[in-house]
Design a protein around this nucleic acid. Structure first.
Lengths: 151, 151
DNA sequence: AATTAATAGTGGCATATGCCAGTAATTAAC
DNA sequence: GTTAATTACTGGCATATGCCACTATTAATT
């Protein structure tokens, strides 16, 4: 048995992506953490900030995330005063999400750290390689994998 | 504003990996789900099965997962009788993990579905491309990203 | 207009994952 | 050979994520 019998290079695309996600989570969290935000939260605040005052459905769709999962994830950010939701005046079913002043400030703080993490990672693997990797992952994210009903 | 203004191609490597992970999770879960296992659980059972009777630390290390997180994740599988842990006779701190008969059976069932998902995905993106993607992700997973102490 | 269908979220429950503070057991130090 | 580290987990708490059932609103039907 090879010494690194437990290095686990799985053939499963899903397992491989999740393993890399955990690794990157450790890395980005270590660096972004001092801002008080998890890297996931920084990413979510960024997504909100970058798209104006998106509705929950728009955010969920963009992030390929379940709507209710998004709702759950927003809770601590709302509790901590970084985010607020306002009912749309046209359609009261819709809730638009936006950063508070404090949220913008906190995001700015976290983004500085994010840049350090991003840069440090790309110094290691190469910006071009990272670019290709993201491109491949985005391709997967955009696939229409609805049951082909191969009847 | 383009119709897919919320398609979100982030520059963040971590966000991109997580988004793809969610997408793949939906896909693999849809197909593996009928076995009664989540794709994550199928992957974990496979990892245990593939490495004999690994210790928790070995599994966690191989999966780049926090040891306590692994412990939590194992609980439903132990509760459902698919996995059991046995104290090592040499070193009683160590708990070896292994599949029960029922766990092996369930894994075999789930693996059939996993193969369908894996094949269907690779039919879409190309086996070679998937191979390259996993390779790139494994490279990240293996990086030594300990704080370089850039003092 | 009243009913039905569709849309947008919320809340409950469950798994996934991580950090930190113990606990148990083994090893290293003195 | 006791005491001080180290190792391997466990448990509690918190966030991340998803499914399903339910509520609130708006749009579509008849």
């Amino acid at each position: 048995m090879p010494k690194d019998a437990f290095s686990a290079t799985s053939a499963c695309n899903y397992a491989t992506v999740r393993r890399a996600a955990r690794k990157l989570g450790q890395f980005y969290d270590d660096i972004v953490g001092p801002s008080g935000l998890k890297a996931t939260q920084q990413g979510l605040l960024y997504q909100i900030s970058a798209t104006g005052a998106p509705t929950m459905g728009e955010i969920a769709s963009a992030m390929i995330m379940d709507l209710s999962a998004l709702g759950h994830t927003l809770k601590p950010l709302i509790r901590d005063g970084y985010v607020e939701t306002v009912a749309d005046s046209q359609d009261r079913r819709i809730r638009r999400v936006r950063l508070t002043k404090g949220g913008e400030k906190k995001l700015a703080e976290a983004m500085k750290l994010w840049k350090v993490a991003q840069q440090r990672l790309e110094d290691r693997i190469g910006a071009e390689k990272a670019e290709r990797l993201r491109s491949a992952l985005d391709e997967i994210a955009k696939l229409d994998l609805d049951e082909p009903i191969a009847s």
